[in-house]
Write a protein that binds this DNA or RNA. Structure first.
Length: 290
DNA sequence: AGCATCGACCGGCGGC
DNA sequence: TGCCGCCGGTCGATG
């Protein structure tokens, strides 16, 4: 599951090889063409396949950035800027290859859904096993309002104040802390893995109500989130289930996780507990986390 | 108006 | 072996 650190890894790998390249043509898989023809919003969001395919040729990739869990491809054509927004969903991955056979894992190769043909035969391939990801072509961020509602980047100077301000709003104060920190309007890029880890590091129970947490503890929790996100970026992200970096590279952070996916608490050895919080499976230690 | 819940998007895989 | 149903990030529609 790609969260902020995994997306950062993808962007850092992609940036040096794809920046400056111009898109020649776009191929879309039959699977996606059929889904879209049946009125489904499969991967390519907010535009028909034909419109998407015809718009992209001759656009040059000027810059690649990460914003929360999204990849922003800043494009330009005839001096006019465009923005291709990519979200990996549960199982999306990018590959930079000359031939689809270079995608070694069969399950990704089989689900190569959108292929951007670049110069000199290079291809930028978006593969997505479960098709929860998205590609959205915009003129700018402002054309898709949800993007404007995302919390600041967690490493930005205003992120802590934003999080604290949200924590005292009526709609959030009765929520479980884990659901709160996983809300992209509160903290950017913190999904199940890193929310689980940050709460464990602070020995905080994931179901604790936001309003039952002191300001000091809230600040400590925010700091732990930043620490685990940065630690994960340094370690190449967590390769769990269907996440891959560019060209199938694996990260190392999964070996550093203390609670996510664990059967026993690393502190006291007791069996960990699982509880659904905010609709997501949450792992924690009933003895160590209060 | 603002909030809560639900459905949509899916294939892999665990469990029976 | 084969099939059923769970899982999940995010948005938009519905209540």
């Amino acid at each position: 599951m790609p969260e902020l650190p995994e997306v950062e890894g993808v962007v850092r790998s992609l940036r040096p090889i794809a920046t400056g390249k111009t898109i020649q043509s776009v191929d879309v898989s039959e699977t996606i063409i059929t889904s879209k023809a049946n009125g489904k919003e499969a991967i390519i969001k907010g535009a028909d396949v034909d419109v998407f395919k015809e718009a992209l040729p001759q656009m040059t990739i000027e810059r690649i950035d990460r914003r929360s869990k999204y990849i922003y491809f800043h494009l330009v054509k005839d001096g006019i800027p465009h923005l291709l927004v990519s979200h990996l969903g549960m199982s999306g991955a990018w590959f930079y290859v000359r031939n689809l056979h270079e995608i070694e894992e069969e399950k990704f190769k089989r689900h190569s859904h959108v292929i951007f043909h670049l110069e000199e035969g290079d291809m930028l391939v978006y593969a997505d096993i479960r098709r929860f990801g998205e590609l959205r072509l915009l003129e700018s961020e402002a054309d898709h309002p949800p993007l404007l509602l995302m919390a600041p980047e967690p490493f930005d100077q205003d992120a802590l104040d934003h999080y604290l301000a949200m924590s005292i709003l009526p709609k959030y104060e009765n929520k479980a802390i884990k659901e709160f920190i996983m809300d992209g309007h509160v903290v950017s890029g913190c999904g199940n893995i890193y929310a689980t880890e940050a709460l464990f590091r602070l020995r905080m129970h994931p179901a604790r109500k936001v309003k039952r947490i002191s300001k000091e503890r809230k600040i400590q929790l925010f700091n732990e989130i930043v620490i685990v996100l940065l630690d994960s970026i340094e370690n190449g992200g967590s390769t769990i289930s269907d996440y891959r970096s560019i060209n199938g590279e694996a990260g190392n952070m999964q070996n550093r996780l203390q609670m996510y996916g664990k059967k026993n608490c690393p502190i006291c050895g007791r069996k960990t507990l699982q509880k659904t919080i905010g609709g997501r499976t949450s792992t924690y230690c009933g003895a160590c986390q209060k």
